[in-house]
Computed example of a mutant assay.
Amino acid sequence: MERPDGPWDPGLQVERTTLAWLRTALAFVVGLLVLLRLLAHESVIAAAVCGALTLPLGLAISWLVWHRHLRGERRLHAEIPLPGGALPAAVAVLAVLAGSSGLIYVLFS
């Protein structure tokens, strides 16, 4: 069996990781849209505030995913360390904000 020229397998690891992060971001955005729809029935102002805090972050995470994919491809071929942890940190912040929005919904209903 022939060994790859670089530190990576010639498979699609970077692409699979990118797709997994995109699925995560999409799941958060769709879940937030449903939650905001439910929250709007209780308080339009609370829904607007939660939407203003969470939806731009969900879209920013999608941009971060694509940017991380491009940097990861370049870094793999240049044999330098892969990108840092900004994306997992942003997803953690989004999870906390989504949970807070859910808590607001529970308190209002």
Rank of each mutant, 00 (worst) to 15 (best):
S43H: 02
T24E: 12
V49W: 03
S62T: 11
S101M: 04
R74C: 07
L12Q: 13
L70A: 14
H69W: 10
V93P: 00
H77P: 04
L70H: 07
P7L: 15
S109Q: 05
L33E: 10
H69Q: 11
L22R: 09
G102E: 00
W8T: 07
L35F: 00
G11Y: 10
R75Q: 07
L38E: 13
L87M: 08
L19Q: 13
P56M: 05
V34R: 06
L76P: 09
L19A: 14
P4Y: 02
L64P: 12
H77N: 07
S62N: 08
L59Y: 07
A95S: 12
G31V: 04
L33Y: 05
R68G: 14
L107W: 01
I45S: 08
L38R: 10
L76C: 10
I104A: 07
A86E: 10
L57A: 09
L87S: 08
L103H: 00
L22P: 09
G6H: 13
A60D: 14
A95V: 00
R74I: 04
R71S: 13
C50F: 00
D5K: 02
R23Q: 15
A90P: 13
G58H: 03
V96E: 03
G31F: 01
L39I: 02
R16F: 15
V29E: 11
G6Q: 11
H77I: 12
P10M: 03
L26K: 08
M1T: 08
G99M: 01
L36M: 03
L38V: 05
G102S: 02
G6S: 09
Y105K: 03
T18F: 07
E15M: 14
G99Q: 01
P7C: 06
W21G: 09
A95I: 00
P88N: 11
L12N: 14
W8M: 12
D5M: 03
G102P: 00
L19G: 14
Q13P: 04
F108E: 02
L82V: 12
S101A: 12
W66S: 04
H77Y: 12
L26D: 11
L55W: 01
S62F: 15
W63H: 10
L39A: 05
A78E: 13
E42L: 05
A40K: 05
H41A: 13
L12M: 14
R71P: 05
P7H: 13
V93N: 01
L70S: 09
T18S: 15
A20F: 14
L19T: 12
R37M: 08
R71V: 14
V65Q: 07
L64Q: 14
G58R: 01
G72I: 04
L107M: 02
L55Q: 04
L97C: 04
A95Q: 02
W21P: 10
G58L: 02
S101T: 05
L87C: 09
S62E: 14
G84K: 03
H77R: 13
V30E: 07
L32S: 12
T24R: 15
